[in-house]
Design a protein around this nucleic acid. Structure first.
Lengths: 119, 119
DNA sequence: TGGTTAGATCGTAATAATACGATTTATCTG
DNA sequence: CAGATAAATCGTATTATTACGATCTAACCA
């Protein structure tokens, strides 16, 4: 894409867009669901589980890592990936916030709950 | 980007990625927040409110419309835009679902609430 | 009808994203 | 050390995105 204009938007808007952007590809959704199922898994497990090459998976993992949503832990030649709960919760809250403030009608109370700090 | 591979992913994953992708730009976040504030507003209002050209705003509106998140209502020469609650709720649920199933620990009950059908 | 206004669309330049083969890097093992 | 394995990175072709000026379209008004 052309580079997005960044000035004129709030940090909150930029962060929210960054999180959503990281979620904006089916492979990255699948990777996150994969990580959630196994709680912690090798990069190779993901490669085996998805219809994409090792290089492409690695690229998507990098994108998720750069957004902060996942983290990797080196274990010999392999890497264990897992969801980064801290940033994950931030993303959850940011999106909950968006839906809270952008959803009209009585659904607001329902959405509101997602915003409460879980810890 | 290169065209994303689509086969091998579930419809749910594809929809989720589509919604997230639509939210993955600060201008589109700002537009949605703008629409939520005024509940219904002219395209020109958005153009005045954001640091982007009319052509660019129109392009972002098109992206949001194609994802189904907003709808436009013609009123003479102007167009009133508003959030499409039906699809908006679908997006909210889909994202709530993702966070529900991907978030470890005790935050699950909290996230779960967002999934309940509001109506 | 002629002019004005609101938005969409066109054309296009610049840049980012996607995908994958090939290669590199790093770690373990014999 | 030599070979094997895991994952990252490189190189690159293709396509999408972003942004904006310019133009087109449609609806309104005098």
């Amino acid at each position: 894409m052309g580079a997005s204009k960044i000035d004129g938007f709030t940090p909150a808007q930029l962060h929210l867009a960054e999180y959503a952007h990281a979620l904006g590809h089916p492979a990255r959704i699948a990777i996150l669901q994969f990580l959630a199922q196994r709680r912690r898994c090798l990069c190779g497990d993901i490669v085996d589980g998805l219809p994409l090459s090792q290089a492409t998976i690695s690229q998507h993992l990098k994108a998720l890592r750069q957004a902060g949503l996942i983290k990797g832990h080196n274990d010999g030649p392999s890497v264990h990936y897992s969801i980064n709960e801290k940033i994950w919760n931030r993303a959850r809250m940011a999106l909950g916030n968006l839906f809270l403030h952008c959803t009209p009608s009585e659904t607001q109370e329902t959405s509101a709950v997602v915003m409460h700090s879980p810890n």
